[in-house]
């Protein structure tokens, strides 16, 4: 089937089998290998991209179902040569070890910072809580880091959230 996506600002029209995930389309067809395949079951978050500005697991998204959508991958976060504030903060705070989960962490954090509202650890559902370390940890729970770089990831995100 023919679909058209806007990927990191460029219009891309491709012919895809309905079985192809958005992740495989990005990596194998469009050459955007920043988004990583970790578990391929929506459990690790390494494939996180922004679909119409909202973070999502690209491994669970069928490419055909995204026809007409606007996709941002880690390759599209920076403004030319200027890193996204989250990318700068991750470098500044050494928020990674092996780096495999980092593209997903960055896209997830970018989506998360735009979300607002309460989370599962917010006491008052009517409140818009400040992004404390506890709130950031809860909101980022869809992104696993097997190196355990969580403390520095939380610090980096907290700096950008301020």
């Amino acid at each position: 089937m023919e679909i058209t996506l806007r990927v990191n600002g460029s219009r891309r029209t491709v012919e895809v089998d309905p079985r192809v995930s958005l992740l495989d389309l990005l990596r194998e067809r469009l050459g955007l290998t920043g988004s990583k395949k970790g578990c391929d079951h929506g459990q690790c978050g390494a494939c996180t991209v922004l679909i119409d500005g909202r973070r999502a697991n690209a491994c669970l998204a069928l490419a055909v179902a995204q026809d007409g959508s606007d996709i941002t991958t880690v390759e599209g976060l920076a403004d030319g040569d200027r890193p996204h504030p989250l990318q700068a903060a991750f470098i500044e705070h050494d928020a990674f070890q092996c780096g495999y989960c980092t593209p997903g962490q960055l896209c997830s954090a970018a989506g998360m910072l735009a979300e607002g509202g309460p989370s599962a650890v917010t006491e008052d559902m009517a409140a818009d809580p400040a992004l404390t370390a506890e709130e950031i940890r809860e909101r980022m729970s869809g992104n696993l880091c097997r190196c355990g770089a969580y403390p520095n990831i939380v610090t980096a995100i907290a700096e950008v959230a301020r």
Binding site: A56, N57, G111, S141, G142
Partner: peptide, 8 residues
């Protein structure tokens, strides 16, 4: 679930 999954 997670933030990503709740968005989908």
């Amino acid at each position: 679930a997670s933030g990503q999954i709740r968005n989908m």
